[in-house]
Simulated assay, not measured.
Amino acid sequence: MTIETLKIKEELRDLIDTYAYLGDEKKIAEQMGLFTPDVIYKAYMGDFLAADVSGTESLEKEFNGHASLVKTYFTMNGQHNVKIDGETATGVSFSQLKMIREVEGKDILTDYSVKYDDKYVRQNGKWFIKERTGYFLIIEARPIA
């Protein structure tokens, strides 16, 4: 593995970690800067396609709508495997995502185990997410004290 490959892998890992951090902080407008303008974003809840959005303008509306319903986000990223092909790359990453929402006066914690399939592109020396598909594989919700 070359130093250049290691550098690219680090840049791509930083990209997905920044995505998680900005999402947790509800900095949605800043998060949009991580995507290409023509991004394709999909989310599956089990076999159900829950989101299918194209373009950062639509994605920002989608994310803001969702964030307005959530009191707190907390994300931990795990494995991140990438394949680099010049100015493009593909990646698979895994995350544990927790959300607290208020339902009928009670705080409900929803715990998601998520696998992301990504396509990345480097433009002007910077990596962006071109496509992101999230597979929400395990979903558990429970009230918290």
Rank of each mutant, 00 (worst) to 15 (best):
T5Y: 10
Q31A: 04
T18A: 08
I3N: 13
T133D: 09
V114S: 08
E11S: 11
G91R: 06
N124F: 03
F35T: 01
G91W: 05
V92S: 03
E104F: 02
L49W: 10
M45V: 11
E102I: 06
Y120H: 05
L109F: 02
G86R: 02
K115F: 05
K126T: 13
F74T: 15
E4S: 02
G78D: 09
L34P: 09
G91I: 03
L137M: 15
K9N: 13
D47V: 13
I8H: 07
T56I: 13
E11D: 15
T56F: 05
T88A: 02
T36Q: 03
G65W: 04
K7D: 13
I8R: 04
T133L: 04
E60Q: 14
R142Q: 12
K27A: 06
E57K: 13
V92E: 08
K115Q: 10
L22N: 02
T2R: 09
L12I: 04
N81F: 14
D107V: 08
E10I: 00
E30D: 12
I139F: 04
E104K: 09
G65Q: 10
D117N: 10
I8F: 00
E60R: 13
K98H: 14
D85H: 11
T2V: 00
Q123H: 03
A43W: 14
Y41Q: 12
T110G: 04
E87G: 02
R122D: 02
I3A: 13
W127F: 05
S58W: 00
L22Q: 04
D47M: 14
K119L: 00
V92A: 03
Y19E: 12
T88L: 03
V121T: 01
V70K: 01
I139C: 04
G125S: 06
A43E: 09
E131D: 10
D17F: 07
I129K: 09
K130P: 00
I28Y: 08
S113A: 11
E102W: 07
R132I: 00
T133Q: 12
F48I: 10
N77M: 15
F63Q: 00
E11G: 07
D107K: 11
S68C: 05
L34K: 09
E30G: 01
